[in-house]
C-alpha cells in the first residue's frame, strides 16, 4: 500500500439529504475521475466520525477518507493495475 500525503482536492456532490458522493479528486495536479465507488462505510476515531470511500479511477483503487470533525479529506492508494 502506498500512502499519498500530498495536496489533495476532492470534488463532491452533496445530497440528496446528507449523502456525500466523491466524483473526482486531484492529486499532485493530476485529476482522477471516480469511475466507481466500490464500498462506503463509517468509523469513529475518538469523537470524530470518518466516512471511508473505496473508489476506482481507470487504473487504481483508492481509499478516500472524509473526516467529519476536521472537514478534510485524506487518500491512500490501495492497489494499481
Amino acid at each position: 500500500m502506498q500512502s499519498a500525503d500530498t495536496s489533495l482536492r476532492v470534488g463532491v456532490i452533496h445530497g440528496p439529504g446528507n449523502r456525500i458522493t466523491p466524483v473526482w479528486f486531484d492529486l499532485n495536479r493530476c485529476k482522477h475521475s471516480v469511475r466507481e465507488i466500490t464500498n462506503v462505510w463509517r468509523d469513529r476515531q475518538g469523537e470524530t466520525v470518518r466516512i471511508h470511500f473505496h473508489v476506482t479511477d481507470d487504473g487504481a483503487l483508492y481509499e478516500l477518507v472524509y473526516d467529519l470533525g476536521a472537514l478534510n479529506w485524506s487518500l491512500e492508494q490501495l492497489e494499481a493495475l
Partner: peptide, 17 residues
C-alpha cells in the same frame, strides 16, 4: 486498523481485480 476496514479492503480489492 479495524476488522471492518480489512473486510472492506478485501471486498474492494477482489471487486477491483
Amino acid at each position: 486498523g479495524s476488522a471492518e476496514r480489512i473486510g472492506y479492503l478485501i471486498k474492494s480489492r477482489i471487486k477491483f481485480r
